[in-house]
Design a protein around this nucleic acid. Structure first.
Lengths: 296, 296
DNA sequence: CACTTATGATAAAAATAATTTATGACAAGA
DNA sequence: TCTTGTCATAAATTATTTTTATCATAAGTG
């Protein structure tokens, strides 16, 4: 069975038209007819319902099912090609969530420059949840991941790089709070929050259920700077990891006064079954040498 | 690119020998040589390190990596074939964890017989964790799953069928307890527990951390009957869902006296992207009609 | 209604690709 | 040195895919 036949089939399914699919691939129409026939013979089932009445082409039930598998096979092949290309170009494809990219990753840049790895970097900025998905399904091989719960996954090799507290930030003009607050105390004020897919969101949820109060969230954003800006202009409070708070920020930082507050944990992760390239190994070595990393 | 070439490659990687791989497939040795070459050309990389010195064949780095993808592609293809076969034979492949199979599933057997679905059944008995994995990776399309935490997964369609309490069981001769116990009280006695992969294990862990005590687990088993037998012979206590406790069992049943005890939840699950066959639809209709099911 | 157009199926020929046979090269071991 | 085991290559053979040419059928059109 040929992968090309699968491509033909996927396109036929998309266009519901053999002639157009043939044009798409710049081949003759019988080529497509025969390719589909080959698949049907090989699988022992009909994939297309060639309705002679309505001049239309529909997928059969097994056709729909096989389409799903065909797509997976082709995307696996594409991934393989991509990975091999990256490896040969000595590219370093790295998943890097925005907060980690801005506030944590910079510390490695000097070393990475020295080892001439900077120019090899191709970073992908995703939320931590998506990052995990992409890492597990093979779209990414190496990624930083932030998490609030200790990360455990049988398929991943994890290096825990750092652990930071979550804080509540408020405007400098805020008179009601200083030093530390309970979540309940803070909850009387409006909040600026992060969008879905951010760990901050999960921790926020956790604190809500834990303390039994739901603050009024007046605005949601994906952008840390916007969040900090709104807080500094007294639009509301926000939950933020201390990693993302710098001295330049015009905000007051409050510790969260609860028994068990999750922490912001930073991991470097790669799939166990992934064969590390030389460049990836060098990268990991640098990350490792700098942090007091522990393998999980 | 041909799937056959991938098969050749996988076998070559396994045997590290072109001649033997050729014998394995009953083809001539150059067939294998050329197949590998085709792959290498198509991918633009060398897959095999043909060491002229040591007379041995090793995979290159990219070869190792490609092997992983090749395996995935082939297993996807095999799944496709299997699914299509099952569909045409009108087989009903069903994941059925042991406890659910023994104590919950029987209630449907009458209806299933009536609809002539019993003979179509091919059940796979796995622990609930494995079940979930197999369901998500496509090895299974339809499965019962037991869980202690409400199951939420974007890829699955879930029908919650029932919810049962967890109990602690002890011998009838046990004088110290009756009615109900806290986990702490029970923990002074030895325990019989389930092996890894069972939800009971997770709930046990949860109760341990929650109450801060770790009972002495003297024996672990995967078999409910062995567990109940040991308990009835006063070897120790055990945590067990009430679903699995019948009147015939010679044990005393104790409620667990804790604020938040997880419950044993029974789901019927299938992947969202799976095209349900007629038989599967009929099956689901039966399950649905009997239980006061709610879709999650 | 006849005519055109769009669609897909099929047969035969042509082109392409895979496999085999035959052979060579090369190193390890007897 | 000779044999054996291994893989590579060329040429011939075989198998497969693609094209060209043609047909059948139904829908739309004047």
């Amino acid at each position: 069975m040929q992968l090309k036949d699968l491509e033909y089939f996927v396109q036929v399914a998309k266009l519901a038209n053999l002639t157009q699919a043939a044009q798409y691939f710049s081949v003759s129409q019988p080529t497509i007819t025969y390719a589909i026939k080959r698949l049907e013979n090989s699988l022992g089932t009909q994939l297309l319902a060639r309705d002679p009445q309505h001049r239309s082409l529909r997928l059969t039930e097994t056709g729909t099912q096989f389409l799903y598998h065909a797509r997976r096979i082709l995307s696996e092949m594409q991934r393989a090609r991509l990975e091999i290309n990256n490896r040969q170009k000595e590219k370093l494809v790295l998943g890097l969530p925005p907060i980690i990219g801005n506030y944590f990753f910079p510390r490695y840049i000097g070393d990475l420059k020295r080892e001439k790895l900077i120019s090899r970097l191709e970073t992908h900025s995703l939320g931590s949840e998506e990052m995990l998905t992409n890492l597990l399904n093979g779209n990414l091989n190496l990624a930083f991941i932030a998490t609030a719960a200790p990360l455990k996954n049988p398929d991943l090799d994890l290096l825990c790089l750092d652990e930071k507290a979550f804080k509540i930030i408020c405007s400098q003009d805020e008179l009601d709070f200083s030093g530390s607050v309970t979540f309940k105390q803070a909850a009387i004020k409006p909040f600026i929050a992060f969008d879905e897919g951010f760990i901050h969101n999960k921790v926020f949820d956790y604190l809500e259920t834990r303390s039994g109060v739901t603050p009024n969230v007046i605005y949601k954003t994906t952008d840390v700077d916007i969040l900090k800006n709104m807080v500094s202009h007294n639009a509301g409070l926000a939950l933020l990891t201390e990693l993302a708070i710098t001295e330049k920020d015009d905000v007051k930082v409050l510790a969260i006064n609860e028994k068990q507050v999750p922490t912001f944990q930073i991991y470097l992760a790669y799939r166990h079954d992934h064969v590390l390239s030389a460049v990836e190994k060098a990268f990991i070595a640098i990350i490792r040498s700098q942090s007091g990393t522990k393998r999980v």
